[in-house]
């Protein structure tokens, strides 16, 4: 089973538009949206939910005001400034609470509850291109690393059960916890960048992260015609690091038009952008030695 994850470092380079189009041309594949914080793949693939599950992760502290003696130890010991002073008894700000249990352990009155934290939902769904596993983290929650791990586990099990040889995942932006969870142990990373200073800077960082976790990677330059010199710099960077250039896509309002039509690039512009996505997929499949490679 191969697991391909689409990443970028910088947000908004076109990960999701590319993933949706690849989901169409790479069939059969289990489709997975690992950007659990701001998931957008569902907007293009219109999944029909088959199962909905609540996602709980970690715990959070809650002070019982009736038992609090206002000794102030919790506030002193909390390293996340999560204890907010108040008239009757302090309260815990869930936005700041890291779930470390220090206040619960050290409260001399035993006045702090330790409750499982409900952080979001995850789904098994059906799309026009096959099965999809996705989620929605509740706003302002953390711990998306575990939700990402859980989605990957679900996708792997589904792929095993249905004997599907491939998992295709839309990854989160950045290079932190959720990206690390998306990347480690994957077969291949497709990195989508753009010929801008930010695109290039963040490409270097995500490539370093792929190297750190020993995941082979290839690069797609989106909007390549925005700046010829930047696109050349990126090509040179890739050559210097022995990274495959998998393909490129032009700066084209059709990408937005496809999104507005809730279609993939391959559905919306089968001859133009769609054909170019097809070539990118051939390059990926060839690198992984997949049977889909022409």
């Amino acid at each position: 089973m191969d697991e391909i994850v689409i990443l970028s470092g910088k947000g908004g380079t076109g990960k999701t538009s590319l993933t949706a189009a690849l989901a169409q041309v790479a069939q059969p594949a289990v489709i997975c949206d690992l950007d659990v914080d701001a998931p957008d793949l569902h907007l293009l693939l219109a999944p029909q939910r088959l199962e909905t599950h609540v996602f709980q992760s970690g715990h959070e502290a809650a002070i019982r005001p009736e038992d609090c003696t206002q000794c102030g130890i919790c506030a002193q010991m909390c390293r996340y400034d999560a204890v907010i002073p108040a008239q009757a008894a302090p309260t815990i700000d869930p936005l700041h609470c890291e779930g470390c249990k220090v206040c619960v352990t050290f409260c001399p009155a035993g006045a702090i509850d330790w409750r499982p934290r409900t952080c979001g939902e995850w789904y098994h769904s059906r799309t026009r291109f096959g099965r999809m596993v996705h989620a929605q983290l509740y706003p302002a929650q953390e711990n998306s690393g575990r939700l990402v791990a859980l989605l990957r586990q679900q996708a792997q099990e589904l792929a095993r059960q249905q004997r599907i040889p491939l998992i295709l995942s839309d990854g989160p932006p950045g290079i932190g916890c959720p990206v690390i969870s998306s990347l480690s142990g994957a077969s291949f990373a497709v990195i989508v960048t753009e010929p801008t200073p930010s695109g290039r800077h963040d490409l270097a960082r995500i490539v370093d992260l792929c190297a750190h976790f020993k995941v082979p990677a290839g690069v797609v330059v989106n909007k390549y015609d925005l700046s010829a010199p930047r696109a050349e710099e990126i090509a040179a960077d890739c050559a210097a690091r022995g990274l495959a250039l998998l393909g490129r896509l032009p700066y084209d309002p059709a990408v937005t038009a496809a999104m507005v039509a809730r279609q993939t690039l391959t559905e919306f512009a089968p001859g133009g952008l769609g054909e170019q996505v097809g070539r990118i997929w051939q390059a990926v499949a060839a690198r992984l030695g997949l049977p889909q490679a022409a």
Binding site: R152, Q156, G185, A217
Partner: peptide, 21 residues
């Protein structure tokens, strides 16, 4: 190397220098 659950033997190791170096 997996954090993400299953993992594969040697997933992503080596890889002919792709992504590394």
């Amino acid at each position: 190397q997996a954090h993400g659950g299953g993992g594969r033997p040697g997933a992503g190791m080596g890889g002919g220098g792709r992504g590394g170096g």
